[in-house]
Structure formats: structure tokens, C-alpha cells
Design a protein around this nucleic acid. Structure first.
Length: 491
RNA sequence: CGGGGUUUAGCGCAGUUGGUAGCGUGCCACGUUCGGGACGUGGAGGCCACGAGUUCGAGUCUCGUAACCCCGACCA
């Protein structure tokens, strides 16, 4: 029992942390608040990246890259933006080190102080809009649809692997448009791209919605969000898409000649998802045996574990296994044949379950004799015998079924944890004992929102898109309300 | 920045009234094993966070310093 996990029920945070480390996804780095993503974790992230990138390309976007450093003066151009990020910025003040007098160490060379400090990007709106200024003169130059895969730094007080780290990997799309309508449509479209990805690849059901003014991105006119629910009943903001209006165009003086020959400020959007999605993936599906990966994101979908005593058996199984490997690969299934002789089958079973490999096939002498394999599926932990004839087609179907099953399981949990309440007492009771989203009336004011947050720790996660209008009374103030909003305690 | 805690082998930990360092796991070697995290034997691995004190003697007591963790405030 080398890698026993903390049970999920007892201490969810510890379970999560344990799992991330023991499944070889990531670990705390020696640098405060920073994370090392290990090869296995990164392989999953790469699959996510690839799927997202394909979607971005399909919707007409191009990848580009902008500097990691933002001159302080750029950063301060947009008042709300700087207010939102100022408290968590890493700042470069010098560009050189020197040896100390006794030669035993190095120190910052005071003579190498930068004239203007550089901010390590917490997000790239400012450096990008400073650049877009030079790219845009006419409506013919629009739209600009760029995406960047990058790292950003936000000096958070408290960090958690994948969910909140001082440095994290993400993608940030930054688009420039001719009209308000086009920009708003873009922001909405990218929200749909995100929710499609979350649900169809990650198998994580999400609620699409609009953020309240209080929760909006610093500098945006409107922030759209996808909100997912974790198994401990906390919500996780999993992706955001912002309609920035003309705020950044005005801050960086980006104008274009419109079709009427008049000068106009450019309309903007930005949108991003980060390695936080890894956290969502882990917390949405995993169980006490470890990680559960949806087949579309599993770096390896099928692992074949040989079971043998003698070298003759080992050779016979290997021959059969290699044949199965080739057939599975011909159907596009990623497969590993683990004939490492140093580890025993039982050890391998546990290890691959911990790492969330969707399907395992055990091949032993008994199976070979019958031309069968023992198939184990990770999502339900069921085992059954399967003929090796045509196994490739059956596993393609099984992987699809598992993808769907993992999603519907998560969705059933999520749906069971959206609770409608009409009084503040019920509201507090549900948050305390059941968790999840609480659908309630709110009077629409920031004061009420903040008071509820202070009293219950719950925030308004979003106003769901397509919300049915409904007359009611604010749970806190009793003032009239025209629709319900979703509250939750969140990460 | 408030409140609590930790620091001893690669990792996880124990170490009693102060007496000179231990367990689990991992690692190396050999043998028996191999259908759910096998076992035996042998082996390597330590400035007990750092600095000062008390003492014949400090992992253990006192003071100081640092790093990290948890709970708050801040946030994708």
C-alpha cells in the first residue's frame, strides 16, 4: 500500500492535494506558490490545449505571442484594470546582478535599476492593445482575432495546485472589432466554445452565465463565465469571456476609420482558460481510487497488463498483446503495453487506476487460451471478459460510452445540487449542509451581494443565460426581484 | 498582514524524566514469487532547519532567526 489516498469524505482539500501528487500530475515547487507540472499532468494539459486550439482555429482565430513584460506606464492606462490587478503584480526593477565584496554571493546591482519598472504580465490586455494600435487604421484591418498561449503571474497570497498558483499557464484571446454587436457576439461565441469543450471533452457540465458588476473582470463591461461544480459542493469558475467595450481602445488610443469615413474607437473582447481546468477535471470525476479521466483527454486510453509466471508465458502473451496494440492503434486508440517485469500485476492495476487510465486489459495464460482479455473500465470499476476478436471496435464503442457516462454522472450530481430557495434561512441551511448552487432572488444591488458574501461566504456565481424571468423577493432585503441568480461557495 | 502549527534519511513520520538516531516506504544486490499494491536475507543513506545559550552531556530545555503548511483577508 505505497500510495494510499486520503478518503474523499474526510478532508476534501487533503484528498485533492494527495491525488494530484500521487497521480504524478504536479507538485509544489521550491519557489513560493509555484507549481511543477509533471510529465503525466502535462500530457493531459497538452490534450486540452490541442482540443481548444483546434476550436479556436475553426472559429477563425490565430495564435500569436506578446512579451511577458509590461512597462508600468502601459499597465496603468486603464483605471479599473490596474485597480483590479495592482495588488498581485510581480515587478522587475533591475536588470543585473553583481558579486558581493567577499565574492561569496551575488546581489542586485543598484546601478542597474530600470528607468521604468516592468510588470510581469498578470494578463496581456495592455501590452496587446498597445500593439494593436499599430495594426489598426481602417475597418478593413478588422477584425483581429488573436490568441496567445502563455504563462502569467499573479502574486496570490494562498495557493493550491492547479486551482491557484502564483504562475500559471493559460490561453488568452484578444480580439478587435468594428462594432459593438460583433464584439458582443464574439464574447458569446467564445463562451460557447468553452462550454462545448468543458462538456464534450472534459465531461464537466457547466452553467453559462453573466457575472454581476461586482464579480466582473477589471476593465470589462460584461463578463461571461462557465461555472462548474466540484464534488465537495464548491463552485469553480472554469473560464471567462469578456466584452471589453471600447475601454482598452480608449486607454491606448486605438481608432479606425469606419465605413462612413469617421474615426471610431475599436471594440474589444478577451477570453481565457487556464490550467485551473486541470483542477476542475480532477475534482469533478475522481473517486477514492484516484483520478478518473474522460477518454478524450486521457493521454493513454488503454493499458495492457500481462500476467504470467514463466518466460514462455510472458513471450506468448507479449506476442498476443502486440497484435492487440496494433489493432487498437489502427482505430486511433492510444495504448500502452506495460510488460515491465519489475512490477507485479497487482501493483500495476492500482497504479493505473490511480492515474485514471480509462481501460485496462489484463492478459494471462487463461485469457490467451480462450482468446480473451479481462477488460476493466475505470469509471464504473467493472471487470468482464472480452473476446480479442474485433476487440478494437468494441473498445472504440466502450470509450465513447465511458465518455458519455462520466459526463452524465457528473451532470446528475450537478443537477442534484442546484437548489431553489426563497428565504435567507433556507439559503444558509443549504449552503451549510448540502452545498452546490443555490438559486435565489436578489435585489440586484452590489451592497446586498457583498453583505451576503460577508455573512455566508457565498458569492453570485452568475446570472444564468436563458434564465426564466420570475417575480420574487430578494432573500436578504425582501426587495422585488425579477429573476433568480446562482449563488455558491467557490474556489 | 492577523491567528495556529511544522521543520529529524529521497518521501511520510516516531523519538518518553536531557545520555550520543529509529520506524514505514522508497532505493541497491541476491533468491523465492507473479490473476488486485508479494516475501525473505543483506546493504547504502543523518551537521536532527539555522544561530546563540543552559548543562559533564541537547533532537529533547531557553532565547533569537529563517523557511514551509493550515485558518482568515485577496483571487482564474
Amino acid at each position: 500500500m505505497a500510495k494510499e489516498l486520503t478518503p474523499r469524505g474526510e478532508n476534501y482539500s487533503q484528498w485533492y492535494n494527495d491525488l494530484v501528487i500521487k497521480a504524478d500530475l504536479a507538485e509544489q515547487s521550491a519557489v513560493r506558490g509555484c507549481m511543477v507540472i509533471k510529465p503525466y499532468g502535462y500530457a493531459i494539459w497538452e490534450k486540452m490545449q490541442r482540443a481548444l486550439d483546434d476550436k479556436f482555429k475553426e472559429t477563425g482565430h490565430h495564435n500569436a505571442y506578446f512579451p511577458i513584460f509590461i512597462p508600468k506606464s502601459f499597465f496603468c492606462r486603464e483605471a479599473e484594470h490596474v485597480k483590479g490587478f495592482a495588488k498581485e503584480c510581480a515587478v522587475v526593477t533591475h536588470y543585473r546582478l553583481r558579486s558581493t565584496e567577499d565574492g561569496s554571493a551575488v546581489e542586485v546591482d543598484p546601478a542597474a535599476k530600470l528607468e521604468e519598472e516592468l510588470i510581469v504580465r498578470p494578463t496581456s490586455e495592455t501590452i496587446i492593445w498597445n500593439t494593436y494600435k499599430n495594426w489598426i487604421q481602417s475597418y478593413r484591418d478588422l477584425p483581429i482575432l488573436c490568441n496567445q498561449w502563455a504563462n502569467v503571474v499573479r502574486w496570490e497570497m494562498r495557493t493550491r495546485l492547479f486551482l491557484r498558483t502564483a504562475e500559471f499557464l493559460w490561453q488568452e484571446g484578444h480580439t478587435a472589432h468594428e462594432t459593438r454587436e460583433e464584439a458582443e457576439e464574439e464574447a458569446r461565441k467564445m463562451l460557447d466554445v468553452y462550454s462545448d469543450f468543458a462538456e464534450n471533452f472534459m465531461a464537466v457540465p457547466v452553467i453559462k452565465g453573466v457575472k454581476t458588476a461586482n464579480e466582473r473582470f477589471a476593465g470589462a463591461l460584461n463578463t461571461y463565465t462557465i461555472e462548474a461544480l466540484m464534488q465537495d459542493g464548491k463552485a469553480l469558475q472554469s473560464g471567462t469571456s469578456h466584452f471589453l467595450g471600447q475601454n482598452f481602445a480608449k486607454a491606448f488610443d486605438v481608432t479606425f476609420m469606419n465605413r462612413e469615413g469617421k474615426s471610431e474607437y475599436v471594440w474589444a473582447t478577451s477570453w481565457g482558460v487556464s490550467t485551473r481546468l486541470m483542477g476542475a477535471l480532477i475534482m469533478a470525476h475522481s473517486d477514492d481510487n484516484g483520478l478518473v479521466l474522460p477518454p478524450k483527454l486521457a493521454p493513454t486510453q488503454v493499458v495492457i497488463v500481462p500476467v504470467y509466471k514463466t518466460n514462455e508465458e510472458r513471450a506468448a502473451i507479449a506476442a498476443k498483446a502486440n497484435e492487440v496494440v496494433a489493432r487498437l492503434r489502427s482505430k486511433g486508440i492510444s495504448v500502452l503495453f506495460d510488460d515491465n517485469d519489475k512490477k507485479k500485476p497487482g501493483w500495476k492495476f492500482a497504479e493505473y487506476e490511480l492515474k485514471g487510465f480509462p481501460i485496462r486489459i489484463a492478459l494471462g495464460p487463461r485469457d490467451i487460451a480462450k482468446n480473451e482479455g479481462e477488460v476493466h473500465r475505470r469509471d464504473t470499476m467493472e471487470k468482464f471478459q472480452m473476446s480479442l476478436d474485433g476487440i478494437e471496435d468494441r473498445l472504440v464503442a466502450l470509450l465513447d460510452e465511458m465518455q458519455a457516462n462520466i459526463f452524465s454522472k457528473a451532470k446528475a450530481y450537478r443537477d442534484a445540487h442546484v437548489t431553489r430557495v426563497d428565504t435567507y434561512e433556507e439559503f444558509k441551511e443549504v449552503l451549510k449542509n448540502k452545498g452546490g448552487f443555490v438559486s435565489a432572488h436578489w435585489d440586484g444591488t452590489t451592497e446586498t451581494e457583498i453583505q451576503i458574501k460577508e455573512e455566508t461566504k457565498a458569492t453570485i456565481r452568475c446570472i444564468p443565460i436563458g434564465n426564466e424571468p420570475e417575480e420574487g423577493k430578494c432573500i436578504l432585503t425582501g426587495k422585488p426581484s425579477h429573476q433568480r441568480v446562482l449563488f455558491a461557495i467557490s474556489y
